[in-house]
Design a binder for these strands. Structure first.
Length: 264
DNA sequence: CGAATTTGACCAGCGC
DNA sequence: GCGCTGGTCAAATTCG
């Protein structure tokens, strides 16, 4: 039930913007994930300005991608400490949500966890963000180095889910990678946590040295960026939820396809 | 040879 | 209490 609820969220949010490159019908160039998410050319864009750690795959010819925040469902909150539960709209309005996030992040800094509290205590879960990418490869190169620590079969899906951890010391960021059972071309990458290092490392054997580091990464502290993104994305999600529609985010590159929502 | 991946076992939470 | 599931661990294996 937990899984079904979550995957349903993905389906509701499942819209894919078309990258300029894709619109041009060229899939051979190494257009990065950041390009797809609009981070590089959207440094002045309010929504993507504060994107969490920069996913920027360069391997594939990704056709499209989008980011959604994972709403904290009742199931989610049941396994999270109360301080990590999603704030309501009222909280967002009076700013208490920000302090909650701040508190949680500060706590994480003081006691970097393995994601689980000691025996007998509830597990602690950090805010998560899911990136939907239409891609031919499962593990999208995002500039960070990841170590795979597990793989599980996914219920109701022929595709396994892979678990990765950032290999940088003291950085407890994790991500899950799985394919949509309904559309195998869609890769769902869920990031959990916040990188404690600013500069993405260069993957071995890659030619990413020529890539300029994402502006957003260096523009403010990770904590600040995460908090702002949470507020923005949650607000959008909540508003769309209120009206019974899924979240839709499109790049503003094409004026006629500006940000909006779609009915599910 | 060190690092990364694979994979089965294990644990905790949840529903019944 | 039991079974199911998600998530993690760690030994074995593979890779560069």
């Amino acid at each position: 039930m937990k899984t079904e609820t979550r995957s349903e969220e993905f389906e509701l949010s499942g819209f894919f913007s078309r990258s300029p490159l894709d619109r041009a019908g060229n899939g051979s160039s190494s257009l990065g994930f950041m390009d797809l998410l609009g981070v590089q050319d959207l440094t002045s864009h309010s929504l993507f300005d504060d994107m969490p750690p920069p996913p920027m795959p360069v391997i594939l010819p990704p056709e499209s991608s989008m980011v959604v925040n994972l709403p904290v469902t009742p199931n989610e909150s049941s396994v999270s400490s109360s301080s990590t539960e999603a704030p309501n709209e009222q909280d967002l309005a009076n700013g208490s949500a920000a302090s909650d996030v701040d508190t949680e992040l500060d706590k994480e800094k003081k006691e970097p966890s393995k994601g689980w509290e000691k025996k007998g205590q509830k597990r602690k879960r950090e805010p998560r963000f899911a990136f939907l990418t239409k891609s031919g490869v499962d593990h999208l190169e995002d500039g960070y180095r990841w170590r795979k620590y597990g793989q599980k079969a996914v219920k109701n899906s022929p595709f396994p889910r892979s678990y990765y951890r950032c290999t940088t010391a003291m950085c407890g960021v994790k991500k899950r990678v799985e394919r949509s059972s309904k559309d195998p071309t869609i890769v769902v990458t869920t990031y959990e946590g916040q990188h404690t290092h600013h500069s993405p490392v260069v993957p071995r054997g890659s030619n990413m040295m020529h890539r300029a580091p994402p502006t957003a990464v260096h523009s403010s502290s990770p904590t600040c960026r995460l908090r702002r993104l949470i507020l923005v994305s949650r607000s959008i999600s909540a508003k769309c939820h209120q009206s019974g529609i899924g979240t839709l985010i499109r790049r503003p590159a094409v004026p006629s396809e500006a940000t909006g929502c779609f009915r599910t």
